[in-house]
Simulated scan of single mutants.
Amino acid sequence: MTRSLILFATAALVLASHIAAFASPCQFESQGAGRVAAVVDARTVRLDDDREVRLIGIEPTAATRQALASRLIGRDVRLRGIDDTPDRYGRQSALVFLGEDEAPIQALLLAQGEAIASAEILDKDCAAALMSSEAGARREKKGNWADPSAIKNAESPDDILAGIGRFMVVEGKVLSVRQAGAMTYLNFGRNWTRGFAVTISKRIWPAFESAGVALKSLENRNIRVRGWVEGNAGPRIDVHRVGQIELLGANEPTGVRP
């Protein structure tokens, strides 16, 4: 029993250290408050005033919906975000804060491996804090990251293609960087038509330049990329935000968690 209590306390301290990163980064404009009446789907909750709220900053895993239900139903929450304009489904997009917590529920889900960071939040400090929460769960192989196949290996394009239409995290070495018209291709295989590739539109090149990342410099680098898998003969992920790509250590093996 003593050992169990020690392990529990250690886990609680580790989780607290991840959540502590949110002392200030994600404090956007207030979008109101309410009580959670129901969980609509894996990233949408309904408040008692019938507003539906989409949790920004995360993509769900198999555990996300149950985690939201157990933590939020019947609880008072505060909403923060950049824009409270409803999306085409009538949902308000926001970070959801439980009670007086300084960290959004998104951070807790990520720290427990119960969600994946989506890289959709453009605020650099907030985005970095969310990614840090996920990184802790990856290191500790929590939740989703306990499954060795949670991160796909870019050298196995068939495994990635099997997940077409899904949000995935892929690691691998960029073998070549090619520009064709208004598109840059990061190729991970020798066979360009069948290997995994990342595509980056010309319209977001300036965002990479502002971040100090020259796309050509990614050649022969190990990277982690996240996004929706598309493609036919060969799988690809279209990158729309700089945060979808992470540089890995020079000697870090690919296809595994750091």
Rank of each mutant, 00 (worst) to 15 (best):
R3Y: 11
L5D: 14
L7P: 11
F8W: 13
T10C: 13
T10E: 14
T10I: 14
L13P: 10
L15G: 10
A16T: 14
H18R: 14
I19N: 00
A21G: 12
F28V: 10
E29V: 11
S30Q: 13
Q31N: 07
V36G: 07
V36L: 09
A38P: 07
A38E: 11
V39Y: 04
V40G: 02
D41S: 02
A42T: 06
A42W: 06
A42P: 08
D49E: 12
R51C: 08
V53G: 08
L55Y: 00
L55F: 05
I56C: 00
Q66T: 15
Q66V: 09
S70R: 12
R71M: 12
L79F: 12
R80T: 08
I82N: 10
I82M: 15
D83N: 15
T85N: 02
R88I: 03
R88Q: 09
Y89M: 06
R91E: 01
S93K: 06
S93G: 07
L95N: 01
G99Q: 10
G99M: 09
E102V: 14
E102L: 14
A103G: 01
I105L: 11
L110Y: 05
A111W: 05
Q112L: 15
E114W: 10
E114S: 10
A119C: 11
I121V: 11
I121M: 01
L122S: 13
D123E: 15
K124L: 09
K124F: 03
D125G: 07
A127C: 03
A127N: 13
A135C: 06
A135S: 06
G136L: 06
A137G: 05
R138G: 03
R139W: 09
R139G: 13
R139I: 12
K141A: 15
K141G: 07
K141N: 06
K142V: 09
G143C: 13
N144G: 05
N144D: 09
N144L: 10
D147E: 05
S149A: 15
A150G: 06
A154H: 07
S156W: 00
S156I: 13
D158H: 05
D158P: 03
D159R: 11
A162R: 14
A162G: 07
G163F: 09
I164E: 05
R166Q: 12
R166P: 05
V169T: 12
E171P: 02
G172A: 07
S176H: 15
S176A: 13
V177D: 14
R178E: 14
R178D: 13
A182Y: 01
T184V: 12
L186H: 00
N187G: 14
F188W: 11
F188C: 03
R190N: 15
T193E: 15
G195W: 11
T199C: 01
S201H: 08
K202R: 14
R203T: 10
R203V: 01
I204N: 01
I204K: 00
P206Y: 00
A207L: 08
A211H: 03
G212S: 13
V213K: 04
K216Y: 06
L218M: 12
L218W: 08
E219D: 10
R221S: 10
R221T: 04
I223A: 05
V225E: 08
G227Y: 07
W228H: 07
V229C: 01
E230N: 06
G231V: 03
P235A: 04
D238Q: 12
H240M: 07
R241K: 03
V242E: 00
E246L: 07
E246N: 02
L247S: 11
L247N: 06
G249L: 01
T254Q: 12
T254P: 14
P258M: 08
